[in-house]
Structure formats: C-alpha cells, structure tokens
Simulated assay, not measured.
Amino acid sequence: MTEVNAIERSPSMLKNYIEITKPRLSIVVVFSSIAGYFLAANTYEWQTLVLLCIGGYFLVGSSNVFNQIIEKDLDALMKRTQNRPLPTGRVSVKNAWIYGVIMALSGIYMLFLINFATAFFGALSILLYAAVYTPLKTRTPLCVFVGAFPGAIPYMLGWVAASGNFGIEPGTLFMLQFFWQFPHFWAIGWMLEDDYKAGGFKMLPTGAADKGTAVQIILYTIWTVMVSLVPVFGVTGDLYMTPYSAVIVGLLGGWFLYYAIKLYKERSNAIAKKLMLVSVSYITLIQIIYVVDKFIR
C-alpha cells in the first residue's frame, strides 16, 4: 500500500474530496443559479430545483477539481494553497481525475434532465474554465477576461433552466455577473499579489497592484452598476425592476464604487480585501433584490 493510498483511506478521506470541490465557492455559485431560476419561473417545480442545485454543484465542483489538478505543482508554491489535498498528496491526481469526470458527467446529465440548453451552457462552463481559463492564468492577464465567461454562466443558467431558451433576460444577468467579476477578482489578485507571483499567475491587468489596475477596477465597477440598473428601464423583456428597488440597487452600487475609488486613492491590501468582501455582498444582495422585487410588485 502506497503512502498516498494510506492517506486516502484515512477517516478524513470524505473531507478531502469535499474540500477539492471548493464547497463554499460552489454553494455561492449554485445560489446565483437558484436566483436566476426564481426570476424566470412562473410556476416552481421542486424536481427542477433539486436537479439545478445538485447538477450545478457537481459542475462547479468538477471545474474546481480539474483546476486544482492542473495547478497542483503551482499550488504547492503558494502559502494560500500549499495545504490543499492535491499538493499534500492527501488525494492522488489519478483519483481526482476520476472524481472530477464522474462529477462533470453526472452534473451535465442532471441539467440535461431539465432541458438541453441548461446542459449545454453547463458543459460549456466546465470547458471554458478548465481547458481555457486555467492554463491561461500563468500566461496572460487576459485570463480574467476569459474566466469571466464561465463565471457569468451560472446566474443566467437558472433562467435558462426555467425557460428553456436564451434571450435578453438571461443575457442581462450574464452581463451583470460578467462585468462584476473584474473588480472582484482583481481585488483578490491585489491582496494576494505576492502569493500569485510565487505561483507564476498573471491575474492583474497591468501585471502589478498599481494605479493602472485601480483605474480599471473603477471602470468595471461602473459598468457593473450600470448593467444592474438596466432592468428598471423596461428594455429587458420579462426581467424588470421597479424604481423603488432600483434606488436600493443604485445605493449598493455607490457602496461598491466607493471602495473601488478608495482603493485607487490608498492602494493598500487592507482596502483591496474590503473591496473583495463588498463585491461579494453586492452581487448577493443584487440577486436577492431582483427576486424579492418580482414577488412584491
């Protein structure tokens, strides 16, 4: 029996396999899909919700598994990731591949049971994340642009699961989450700049936590806020928001933009961390407000 196999048969084996799916991140992503579903559906089917939740988790989890397999040696170089199951050998690469493939195929099948379009976009997100975004992280800062595509799919995926088609409504949800990812991930890249450099990752648009990166964070934050307000103008089909909710969304956008500007002025890791936390709160609250607005109007 090899040392790795002995480790994988330890009582913590289940915890290791859950850990490599990045459960907190995966749950957040599934939450956005659920929000998209409730925005679109006129009648709610618990079977569809269960398939969307489990299938969505499997897809996101498998993407994270593939990401960690590819980056195993680089993760070992960074303090933030060096104790993950793959770099430490608590899970072998071979078993991680098997695990990831089973999760991916199971997730795609579950989404296919909802409708073909949902399965298609789900499979596309895995392909873009694992096969395109992940290899680009050590090559070019454009990786964030590429990664924003699979990262924006889950929010619109819920709408597609409910409606069976892609139109202006899920397209708007896609755009909102697409633009949001730039300030979010650049804030992470800013505060973890040294760690990412140790692993050879090129995450910041200028290659450094500098004034140029801060300017781009502000610009993408503005675009995010602008897209979040588009539904109030009645130009996005069945996706509509009342003026009352738009005021709240606008205030949240101002909160988000405040920290983006503050980062430009102070250019510190402490503010970058606050911006990252604000960005997570912002997108979560926007999703909740959109859904609540639908039910109260």
Score class of each variant (00 low, 15 high):
M1G: 12
E3F: 12
K15F: 10
N16G: 03
I18Y: 03
P23R: 02
I27M: 14
S33C: 05
A35R: 01
A40M: 07
A41Y: 01
N42A: 09
N42E: 14
W46T: 11
C53K: 03
Y57F: 15
V60N: 13
G61N: 02
G61D: 07
V65Q: 04
F66H: 10
I70S: 09
I70R: 07
E71G: 05
L74S: 13
L77R: 15
M78V: 03
T81L: 08
T81Q: 04
N83I: 06
P85F: 08
P87A: 03
G89Y: 02
V93N: 01
A96P: 00
I102K: 05
L105G: 01
Y109C: 08
L111F: 05
A117I: 04
A117Y: 04
T118F: 01
G122D: 06
L127H: 01
L128H: 04
A130I: 11
A131C: 14
Y133R: 02
Y133N: 00
P135A: 12
K137M: 06
C143P: 02
C143M: 05
A148G: 13
P154Y: 06
Y155D: 00
V160H: 04
A161D: 11
A162N: 01
S163D: 08
G164C: 13
N165E: 12
P170M: 00
T172K: 01
T172S: 11
M175V: 12
F182W: 11
P183K: 09
A187R: 09
G189I: 12
M191W: 13
F201R: 06
L204C: 10
T206C: 12
T206H: 04
T213N: 02
A214M: 09
A214P: 12
I218M: 15
L219W: 11
L219E: 08
I222F: 12
V227D: 07
S228H: 07
F233V: 02
G234R: 07
D238N: 13
S245Y: 14
A246R: 05
V249N: 04
W255R: 03
S268D: 06
A270D: 13
I271S: 06
S279M: 06
S281A: 14
T284L: 15
L285G: 00
D293F: 07
K294N: 09
F295L: 10
